[in-house]
Design a protein around this nucleic acid. Structure first.
Lengths: 130, 130
DNA sequence: TGTAGTAGGTACCTACAGGAAAGTGGCTCT
DNA sequence: AGAGCCACTTTCCTGTAGGTACCTACTACA
């Protein structure tokens, strides 16, 4: 903590919230949101069933919930076409697109450090006295 | 999606997991982990009670769980001093420290875009036909 | 004697997230 | 006539994360 060049220590003494990035985490990294944002970004505009098929094991109920939440937060846009059968298209918004470099860094960290996490886990699990 | 310069589209077609950053999210952004890592980074080595006092509303049980998990993943280090009363110190590891620029970007995004999320929410909530 | 302090562990309980399955509406195809 | 399509919605149910409260061992100190 001697040299705090990378982390902003602004809200470090916040009485209520000890971590200034907690609100972002709640918005961006709640469950199922990253797969949705990811597929929406890489595959572009998509319909409900396409998302459902593209994200394995997600149920339509939860998918609807997450999509509504993401729409409310302004990260994605929903366009409803009153046809028969109905057609709804989801696409990432400008605000959602602004997360792209962040996700890229995350993917980069994952590529470089996930195996070390795996190794740490193995060491911990096979440590003596456990 | 036309120009994929920032996001790596490597695992975009992964059959099992539609999102290559999901594993990282599970490790780094599970509940309470960011406040713990944040305070550990900004305040340096800390004892259990210090963490407990520094992170409002966390219960000792959950704090223990999260600390164990973070230790197992290699993000923090635990040193036990067999004194009376017992003394345990937690500090961030090299691997955990490597998350610093990531967290900095997150804080930066928060500073620049959180109000826009707030605005989107207000617009959504006060929209007609709702 | 008894109280404080530390770092948790344990038992019990509740709330809520999330899963499974079926329903809805209106058109179109067979 | 019936089935199928889409985008959900609703109901019911379960699992589990997390909260509360109490417990441990040991010593120093009043």
């Amino acid at each position: 903590m001697a040299d705090d060049t990378t982390w902003t220590a602004s809200a470090a003494t916040d009485p209520q919230l000890a971590c200034p990035i907690s609100p972002v985490v709640d918005i961006v990294f709640s469950r199922w949101t990253t797969p949705i944002l990811w597929t929406l970004h890489t595959h572009g505009r998509q319909r409900f069933v396409e998302l459902e098929r593209g994200i394995p094991r997600i149920t339509p109920k939860v998918l609807t919930q997450r999509l509504r939440q993401l729409e409310r937060d302004g990260l994605i846009m929903r366009t409803y076409h009153p046809e028969v059968p109905p057609r709804v298209e989801y696409e990432i918004s400008e605000l959602g697109r602004s997360l792209a470099p962040l996700f890229a860094h995350l993917a980069e960290w994952a590529a470089g450090n996930l195996d070390e996490v795996e190794r740490a886990r193995h060491d911990y699990d096979t440590a003596p006295g456990r």
